[in-house]
Design a protein around this nucleic acid. Structure first.
Length: 430
RNA sequence: GUGAGUGUAGCUCAGUUGGUUAGAGUCCCAGAUUGUGAUUCUGGUUGUCGUCGGUUCGAGUCCGAUCUCUCACCCCA
C-alpha cells in the first residue's frame, strides 16, 4: 500500500479569503456604502452572479470574452460570471418596462469576476458598489450621484484634500471634436483616454496616425489641459459646445453651493473607456499615490435602447472594494477593533450548565453573549472574555450575589458590581 | 498574453566563500496564579527550506525547469 501526500488546497489566483479580521474590514466598507446610499434614497437590488454571455458581448463586443469567466452549462447555454453590474441593471429595467415609476435610484454591491492577471488594486474576484439614477436627463441626477460619492468618502474619514472627483463631459468632447472637424469620435476617444499615460509626444503621434492635423491635435490638447470652466469658454465657439459647457457649469454650481466645492475639479482629460457614455463622466482620484483612480462613472442615455429596450436615460457609477481598502489603509482609516460582545458568562466552579442557561437569559434580552465551551479555569475564562472583546463578565456563581443576582465586572474599568439581570441590562445601556 | 522580482515555522524575517542535528522574534499551548483578564517570568509545539531534477563526498546556499505570490505592460467595464 502506498500513501501519497495530499497537496494542501490552494487559493485560486486573484481571489481572497476573508478571515474574521478581514470580514470586519469588509463589513465596515459595505456598511458605510449601504448607509450613505440609503441616506440618499437609493434602493438596493441584486441579480444573479452569472448571466447569458450575450448580455456582455452585446454591449462590449466579442473581445470581452477573453477577459471574463465563461462556460457552457449542461443545457448547452453560453454563460458568463458577471464582470460588471450595469448590463444586469439594464436587463432588470428593460424587463419591467413601464411598470417602474421613473425616475428611480438604485444601488447594489455585486460580487464581480474578471479573468485578468492580478496586480495592485485588481483581482479576479472583487466587490463593487454601484449607484445608478435612471429615467431622467436632469443634471440633478449627476449632482446626486457625485454628492453621494463625496459624502461616502468623507464618511470613511478621508479629507477633501485626500481625493478629488474629476468631472468631464463626453458631450463637450464630442461637440468640440465636431467643431474642429475631426474624424469619428469613436476612433478618437481611445487615444484621448490614453493621453496622460502615453505623454504629449506619443499622444500627438497617435492622433496624427488616425488622420488629425497638427492644428487639430493641438486644439484637443489645449481643451483637455483646461483647469477651469473659464479657460474652456475661451476655446469653444459652436452653440452645441457652449450648451455642453453650460451643463458642466450648472453641475459645478449645484455641487459648490451644496458644499462639495472642495471635492470636485474640472478634468477634461477624463474620457473613460466605455463606449456607452454619452454625457458627464467623472472619476475619483487618490491625490496621494500617483492619482490612482478609485471610482468612476457617467451618463449613459442610450444603453437600454442599445440592449433592445425602450430609451431610459441613466447615470451611474462604480467603486471597487480593493482600491478603496488600499486607500483607506494608506490613511490608517480601517477599523482595528475586534468583534463587539456585550457579555461573557463565567463561572468560578465552571458550572457549564448554569453558564449556558444564563447566557440564554441575556441573549433573550437582546445582548451579544459568549461563554466558555468547556470547563476551564477562571483565569482562562477571563482571558477568553478579554480576547473576544466583551464589555462585561457576568459570574453565575459569585458568593457575594444573592438569589436572582449576579456579580459582574466591567472589563474596561476593572470594577466589580452586583445586580439582577435587569440591572446589568441597564448598566450596559448606559 | 509579455517582462521583472520573490518564495526558509501560522506571521515577520536571519542563515558566513557549499560543511554536522536550520535559527530569532511573534503567535499559539502549558505553568508560576485552585475566586478573576491586558503586564511580567519560565517551559513547550511548530518546517519535504515552494516543487521536481542536475552539479557535488556533501545543497537552504550553485545550475535548470516548473509553480506561487508581488510589481509593471496589455486591458480596464
Amino acid at each position: 500500500m502506498t500513501t501519497t501526500k495530499v497537496q494542501p488546497p490552494q487559493l485560486p489566483k486573484g481571489t481572497r479569503d476573508f478571515y474574521p479580521e478581514d470580514m470586519r474590514i469588509q463589513n465596515f466598507i459595505f456598511d458605510t456604502w449601504k448607509r450613505i446610499a440609503l441616506r440618499f434614497g437609493y434602493e438596493e437590488y441584486e441579480g444573479p452572479m452569472f448571466e447569458h454571455l450575450e448580455l456582455f458581448t452585446g454591449k462590449s463586443g466579442d473581445e470581452i470574452v477573453s477577459q471574463l469567466y465563461n462556460f457552457e452549462d449542461k443545457g448547452g447555454r453560453a454563460i458568463a460570471l458577471r464582470p460588471e453590474m450595469t448590463p444586469t441593471l439594464a436587463r432588470l429595467v428593460i424587463q419591467k418596462g413601464n411598470a417602474i415609476k421613473k425616475p428611480f435610484k438604485w444601488f447594489s454591491i455585486p460580487r464581480l469576476f474578471r479573468y485578468e492577471r492580478a496586480q495592485k488594486g485588481r483581482l479576479r474576484e472583487f466587490f463593487q458598489l454601484n449607484l445608478d439614477v435612471l429615467g431622467t436627463e436632469s443634471i440633478y441626477a449627476e449632482a446626486d450621484l457625485i454628492s453621494a460619492t463625496a459624502t461616502m468618502l468623507l464618511d470613511f474619514g478621508l479629507k477633501s484634500t485626500d481625493f478629488v472627483i474629476g468631472i468631464s463631459s463626453r458631450k463637450l468632447l464630442a461637440t468640440y471634436l465636431q467643431e474642429i472637424g475631426t474624424p469619428s469620435a469613436d476612433l478618437v476617444y481611445p487615444v484621448l483616454d490614453r493621453r496622460l499615460k502615453i505623454g504629449p509626444e506619443a499622444f500627438a503621434e497617435a492622433l496624427a496616425a488616425i488622420g488629425l492635423s497638427t492644428e487639430q491635435s493641438q486644439k484637443i490638447d489645449a481643451l483637455m489641459s483646461c483647469k477651469s470652466i473659464e479657460e474652456v469658454k475661451k476655446l469653444v465657439s459652436s452653440p452645441s459646445s457652449i450648451e455642453a459647457l453650460h451643463e458642466i457649469e450648472d453641475l459645478f454650481d449645484i455641487l459648490t453651493s451644496t458644499g462639495f466645492g472642495d471635492c470636485i475639479g474640472l478634468d477634461l482629460s477624463i474620457v473613460r473607456g466605455l463606449a456607452y457614455y454619452t454625457g458627464i463622466v467623472f472619476e475619483v482620484f487618490d491625490k496621494g499615490k500617483a492619482m490612482r483612480a478609485v471610482a468612476g462613472g457617467g451618463r449613459y442615455d442610450s444603453l437600454c435602447e442599445k440592449l433592445g429596450g425602450a430609451k431610459v436615460p441613466g447615470v451611474g457609477f462604480g467603486m471597487g472594494d480593493v482600491v478603496l481598502a488600499d486607500l483607506l489603509r494608506d490613511h490608517d482609516l480601517l477599523p482595528t477593533q475586534k468583534q463587539t460582545l456585550d457579555l461573557f458568562i463565567a463561572s468560578f466552579s465552571t458550572d457549564m450548565k448554569q453558564i449556558f442557561k444564563t447566557a440564554n437569559i441575556f441573549r433573550q434580552m437582546g445582548f451579544n453573549v459568549s461563554h466558555p465551551l468547556s470547563p476551564i479555569k477562571l483565569g482562562k475564562q477571563m482571558e477568553l472574555a478579554n480576547q473576544q472583546g466583551a464589555t462585561c463578565v457576568v459570574y453565575v456563581d459569585g458568593e457575594n450575589a444573592k438569589e436572582g443576582e449576579f456579580e459582574f465586572k466591567d472589563l474596561s474599568k476593572g470594577t466589580m458590581n452586583v445586580g439582577s439581570a435587569q440591572r446589568i441590562s441597564e448598566y450596559l445601556k448606559q
